[in-house]
Design a protein around this nucleic acid. Structure first.
Lengths: 161, 161
DNA sequence: CCCGCCTCGTTGACCGAGCAACGACCTGCC
DNA sequence: GGCAGGTCGTTGCTCGGTCAACGAGGCGGG
C-alpha cells in the first residue's frame, strides 16, 4: 500500500509537457480543414482525393498499385478502394489490371485527372503557403521537417513490439 | 512581366517547400492512429472520447456548454452531440440543462467518468511521450510549440477574409 | 406585450473510413 | 502437378462525422 502515491505519470492532465502536442494537434486540425474546404468549394475535390491524384502524378507512368496507394495515403485498403471508386466515377482515374500480378490492380491517372489536378494545384499550394508556411520562419521549417520525419518514423514503424 | 519572380505559386507539385508539410501530415496521422489504438484496446475509449473527458475535467465544475466543447474538440455541433450521447450511454458524462440559458445544455463529468479518465491517462501520456516527445529534443519542442501555436491561430481564425 | 430574428442543441439523411470475411491469385514444398 | 498458406483487392456491416432543417428559447423594437 503506497503511503506516498507514486504519481508515476503525472495524473493531472495539465502537464506542461503536453503543450507542444496540443498546439500540434490544433494546428493540424485547422489547416487540414481549411485545405479541404478550399479544394471542395473551388474544385469539387476532397483533400484526400487531391492527394491521391498527386501521388499518382508523381508515380512512374502515372500508375500505382492499390496497396502502395493506400500506404501513401495512410488509409486502409478498403478506404483506398472506395476512394479510387469515386475518382473512377468522376473519370479522373482508370482501373487497370496489373501486368505482373493478375490479382493486383493499379490506378492510372486519366487525361482529365491530370487536368483537374493541374487546375486544383494552385489552390492547394496557396493554402499550404498561407496557413502553414507563412506563419513559420525558414529555419523553423527545417526543424519541423526533421523532427516530423523522426516522429513519423518512430510512430509509423513497428506495431507494438 | 515581373523581373523579380514574386515566388508565385510554383505549379510543379514536387516543390521542395512542401517537404515540411508532408512530414507534418504523416507524423500526425501515425501518432494519432497509435494513440487511438492504444486507448481503444486498453480502455475502450476513442481518442476523441478521451479528449472530451480531458476537456471536461479541466473545466470549472467539470461541466461545459456543448458549443464550447465542440469548439475545443474541433468538431461540429452535431458531432459533439453524438459524442456526448455515447459518453452518456456509458455513464461517463451526464447531460444537465444550463441554469443561465434554458436552451443550452451542459455536459458534466460523472464520478465514473473521472475514474475512467484517471485510469486511461497513463496510457495516453505514455503514448505521447513515446511517439511524439521522445523523438524530439527539448529545444525543438519549444520551436514546435511556438510555431504550431502560430499556425493554429493563422488557420483557425478568420474564415476566408 | 408580442413579434421578428438570432442562437443553442438535436435530429435525419448521407458520406467516408475501418474491420472482418471473401474470392482470386501467387508461391513453395511434396 | 497439386495443394497449403499467404497476399491482393473488393465487399458487407458498422461507426463516427458533417450538413441542412428543425424546435425551443433568448433578445430587442414597436
Amino acid at each position: 500500500m503506497p503511503a506516498t502515491e507514486p504519481q508515476e505519470a503525472p495524473l493531472t492532465a495539465r502537464d506542461p509537457r503536453l503543450a507542444p502536442w496540443r498546439a500540434f494537434v490544433r494546428a493540424q486540425a485547422h489547416v487540414s480543414r481549411r485545405l479541404d474546404e478550399d479544394l471542395r468549394t473551388e474544385h469539387g475535390l476532397s483533400l484526400q482525393e487531391y492527394v491521391a491524384l498527386l501521388i499518382l502524378v508523381e508515380s512512374p507512368g502515372h500508375r500505382l498499385r492499390m496497396g502502395r496507394l493506400a500506404e501513401s495515403l495512410t488509409l486502409s485498403k478498403s478506404g483506398a478502394t472506395r476512394l479510387i471508386d469515386r475518382l473512377v466515377a468522376d473519370g479522373l482515374v482508370a482501373r487497370v489490371s496489373c501486368s505482373s500480378d493478375a490479382r493486383g490492380a493499379e490506378a492510372e491517372l486519366t487525361e482529365r485527372g491530370i487536368d483537374r489536378l493541374r487546375t486544383a494545384a494552385p489552390t492547394h499550394l496557396r493554402g499550404i503557403a498561407e496557413y502553414f508556411l507563412s506563419p513559420i520562419g525558414q529555419t523553423d521549417l527545417e526543424v519541423i521537417e526533421r523532427t516530423m520525419g523522426e516522429v513519423a518514423a518512430c510512430a509509423g514503424g513497428q506495431h507494438r513490439a
